[in-house]
């Protein structure tokens, strides 16, 4: 346990001092500022656009943090052979995987928490400026949606750790992780289409392809279950069963990925 904690601490420090962080934070601030500037153009939809833009900015910042800083925090260790030094200490390989995961997660969460505070200030300012157009808006749903952006990022971090454990190069880890994200973000829509009456009329979609996509849908992370932007934008209530399912889905997926990563990592050789 002490190995996990000490590794998580140095991973967090290494991440939070990375200069890319400033660029990502600036981009998010730009999006929040843009939101304030252009909000007036949307008339009655100001509330919806504000919430949607803020949650999207958080999500984009989270993705950039994971892909441009998080990937390097583990894959570079292997790339540059820093792992030789780390594993020469009494830290098991399983502790290494969990320590790295917790460190990257903590770094992303702290960064996103700061951005969420700024995002909330933006929403608060626009809410105060245009109170008539935020009719259905509730802070609780907004924060629930923001929390699930965190959960989605936590799952992506586990994907990065998993791919880092099987590849030897940080660039390959990045490519695999981005692919997993793209597939995970779109799989729900693909399945929705396949099950619709429109797809049944398509000759090009064979049964085998349909079955293959069904199987793939169980393997890749379905990231749409963490998307509550529409509910937050329209101020719709979210059922506890949906929240519970999304949380449980993330917990199971993250645990399985980290266990697999640990198993692979234990067998791996570091030349």
């Amino acid at each position: 346990m002490r190995g996990i904690l000490s590794l998580a601490v140095i991973t967090f420090k290494e991440g939070i001092r990375n200069r890319s962080l400033f660029g990502i934070a600036l981009l998010a601030l730009f999006l929040f500022g843009l939101n304030i500037t252009v909000a007036g153009f949307f008339m009655r939809d100001i509330g919806k656009v504000t919430v949607d833009m803020n949650l999207s900015a958080l999500s984009v910042a989270g993705l950039l943090l994971v892909f441009f800083v998080g990937v390097n925090l583990m894959a570079k260790d292997i790339d540059r052979k820093t792992i030789h030094l780390v594993l020469s200490k009494p830290i098991s390989r399983i502790e290494y995987i969990w320590g790295k995961y917790l460190g990257i997660l903590f770094f992303v969460f702290v960064s996103l928490a700061i951005l969420l505070a700024l995002s909330s200030a933006t929403v608060f300012f626009l809410h105060g400026s245009y109170p008539d157009y935020f009719g259905q808006f509730t802070w609780s749903v907004f924060f629930v949606a923001a929390f699930f952006v965190f959960v989605k990022i936590a799952l992506l971090v586990s994907i990065v750790v998993f791919f880092s454990s099987i590849t030897t190069n940080s660039f390959i880890t990045l490519i695999f992780s981005v692919c997993a994200f793209i597939v995970g973000s779109t799989i729900e829509e693909v399945l929705f289409y396949l099950r619709s009456s429109f797809a049944a009329k398509e000759l090009a979609i064979s049964d085998s392809l349909r079955h293959l996509l069904e199987i793939v849908s169980y393997l890749v992370p379905n990231l749409s279950v963490f998307d509550f932007k529409t509910e937050a934008a329209h101020g719709l209530a979210i059922g506890l069963d949906r929240l519970g399912f999304s949380l449980a889905y993330a917990a199971v997926y993250i645990t399985v990925l980290l266990l697999l990563a640990s198993l692979i990592f234990r067998r791996r050789e570091f030349n």
């Binding site: 140095i10 420090k13 290494e14 052979k81 820093t82 030094l85 594993l87 020469s88």
Partner: peptide
Amino acid sequence: QQDIGYLPENPYLYDHL
């Protein structure tokens, strides 16, 4: 591991620490 101290040929340490 508890009994060993290891210095690799070119130690790559953490840049930001």
